[in-house]
């Protein structure tokens, strides 16, 4: 016990200069924030910087090792070889489509959760929305592979109506990604709707606004920043995905697959890094654009 106390005192003994530093509130906050800021700076921004620097290097064609000579060849290839442009636009299209599908699906669910359900049901629904996130990504993607198979569940449900499974391809990829990222859209919209005072609904009704009118003129404009906040998640997660498209994408490929194919045996990390800067640039532009909507305050 005595030893413990003495040890404790040892640990807590702060030199006089340090004590003076700790009395200053600014310094205290600074010390508190230093480790997480270092982590953010080194692990996240530092890695992005390293990625960009690597993309300006080359590769030895005989040994496959990275040659640290500055070159713009990777970006030149990326801009001049048509297939990379095609893949970039395809990836952007899928990410946008996934975002729209998720927004359309998430809005009614979030509206019910925030404004209709009882507080008890509300809590249950939040858990239900979060629950799919507890299961492994791969399990969910392979489950969709089974569902979308030519003799799978979707086909047997749709066949009486003369329809069938879309099969493996970009459509299947969009469906799978929309399923995977839906909770990331529901939660911000739900939070946005919860902040919306009920009195606004009453005021609208008092002034003769029907439900549809209230939704269109009151709810949608006010909750739009929350939808944009959700879209940041769904859009960026879809932009970088390469696993779902490998599992249900048939012969399709997205930007992430090009990055993946240039690693491993190819070991062309500089080119992979150059390809990986495309989603980063797109997201920077996207974030700059949505800043005006106030969406970033909704995250």
């Amino acid at each position: 016990m005595n030893l413990l106390r003495r040890l404790g005192r040892g640990f807590l003994a702060i030199p006089r200069s340090g004590r003076r530093l700790l009395r200053r509130p600014g310094a205290r906050v600074g010390l508190l924030l230093l480790p997480p800021m270092l982590w953010l700076g080194v692990a996240y921004l530092g890695a992005l910087g390293a990625l960009f620097i690597t993309s300006l290097w080359g590769q030895n064609s005989f040994t496959g090792t990275i040659e640290r000579v500055w070159t713009l060849d990777n970006f030149h290839d990326l801009l001049t070889i048509e297939v990379y442009r095609t893949i970039t636009f395809r990836t952007l299209g899928i990410a946008a489509l996934v975002t729209v599908v998720d927004a359309v699906l998430a809005f009614p669910i979030a509206l019910y959760m925030a404004k209709v359900a009882s507080p008890r049901l509300q809590r249950l629904l939040v858990i239900a929305v979060l629950m799919p996130l507890w299961a492994s990504y791969l399990v969910k993607a392979y489950a969709w592979r089974g569902l979308l198979s030519q003799n799978g569940l979707i086909d047997s449900i749709a066949s009486p109506f003369g329809l069938g499974t879309p099969g493996y391809g970009l459509m299947a990829t969009t469906i799978t990604l929309a399923y995977l990222w839906l909770p990331y859209m529901i939660l911000p919209i739900y939070a946005g709707l919860e902040r919306l005072p009920d009195s606004l609904f009453e005021a609208s009704a008092d002034l003769g606004g029907k439900s549809a009118m209230t939704l269109r003129r009151i709810v949608l404009p006010m909750v739009f920043p929350a939808v944009v906040a959700g879209s940041i998640f769904t859009f960026s997660l879809s932009m970088g995905d390469y696993i779902a498209v490998r599992i249900v994408g048939g012969t399709g490929q997205l930007l992430g697959n090009v990055v993946y194919d240039n690693q491993g045996a190819a070991n062309n990390l500089p080119f992979a890094a150059a390809v990986a800067t495309i989603p980063v640039v797109v997201m920077v532009v996207y974030l700059a654009a949505v800043r005006r909507t106030g969406a970033l305050e909704n995250l």
């Binding site: 590769q59 064609s61 005989f62 496959g64 290839d77 070889i81 297939v83 990379y84 095609t86 893949i87 012969t251 399709g252 490929q253 697959n257 090009v258 194919d261 240039n262 045996a265 190819a266 062309n268 080119f271």
Partner: peptide
């Protein structure tokens, strides 16, 4: 053609 060229060709084949 080296493996880098093959990798690029493979991307083009998949389109």
């Amino acid at each position: 053609t080296d493996y880098g060229a093959w990798t690029q060709a493979w991307t083009e084949i998949k389109g």
